[in-house]
């Protein structure tokens, strides 16, 4: 049996983490971090196969965390999907997305089927899905 892929879920909203973990656990091993700094530390320690990263967090925001991940040769190849519940202007499209170099983004609330489809696509292709 092949080993399950590992996903790091970084979000300060505990409820979002619990609900999303329930979905991802059906197919993956999930590790949670509840803030930007904790997310960076766990990414370094466990080298996940994919990172789901919230944009607005109290300590370090998702754009900054993403930039730091992409600047690190050991983690730069790990696909990052940004998560946001914000409407226009703040959504990680256009300039911010370019700056953050994230591979994709998902809008909250995330539908279980869509989440699994997007994550699976990244993990099987390891390329941009847009």
């Amino acid at each position: 049996m092949t080993q399950r892929k590992r996903i790091l879920l970084v979000d300060d909203d505990h409820d979002f983490v619990e609900a999303t973990t329930a979905v991802l656990e059906s197919a993956y091993t999930v590790e949670a971090a509840y803030g930007g700094n904790e997310g960076l530390a766990k990414a370094h320690a466990s080298k996940p196969d994919l990172i789901l990263l919230d944009v607005i967090m109290p300590d370090e925001d998702g754009f900054t965390v993403c930039e730091e991940l992409k600047a690190d040769p050991a983690l730069a190849h790990v696909p990052v999907i940004l998560l946001t519940s914000l409407p226009d202007g703040w959504s990680p499209t256009g300039e911010a997305r370019g700056r953050s170099k994230a591979e994709g983004y998902l809008e909250k609330p995330v539908r279980p089927a869509e989440l699994l489809r997007r994550v699976d696509k990244f993990l099987s292709e390891g390329t941009q899905d847009r």
Binding site: D13, F16, A19, V23, S85, L86, P87, P109, A113
Partner: peptide, 22 residues
């Protein structure tokens, strides 16, 4: 935009997760 939408998104997530049988 944020303070009202974020908790609603969290609620909707829970509901979707339950509805889809997870």
């Amino acid at each position: 935009s944020h303070e009202l939408r974020a908790p609603l998104a969290a609620i909707e997530n829970y509901l979707n997760v339950m509805l889809d049988g997870f």
